[in-house]
């Protein structure tokens, strides 16, 4: 069982961030929320591990 990776794991952080914004380009706020929801589901499935997903949800919820 692999724990949630919280150390830097993306080779090109700036490039990824730019791609994320570009993916949303031209969408309304509602459409962006919908895209984000789909993205969460897609990435969650890719991760698959219940423990990693649980840790990710806890981290995301922290401070909300």
């Amino acid at each position: 069982m692999s724990a949630l990776i919280t150390r830097p794991n993306i080779a090109d952080p700036d490039g990824f961030y730019a791609r994320l914004l570009a993916t949303h380009k031209g969408l309304s706020e509602g459409q962006s929320h919908a895209l984000n929801a789909r993205l969460v589901l897609i990435l969650a499935n890719h991760i698959g591990e219940a423990a990693a997903l649980e840790a990710a949800m806890v981290l995301a919820r922290d401070g909300a």
């Binding site: 929320h33 919908a34 929801a37 789909r38 969460v40 589901l41 897609i42």
Partner: peptide, 10 residues
């Protein structure tokens, strides 16, 4: 509603 529709979309 957001996640329900996301699932159906995908």
């Amino acid at each position: 509603r957001l996640f329900r529709d996301a699932v159906l979309h995908l």
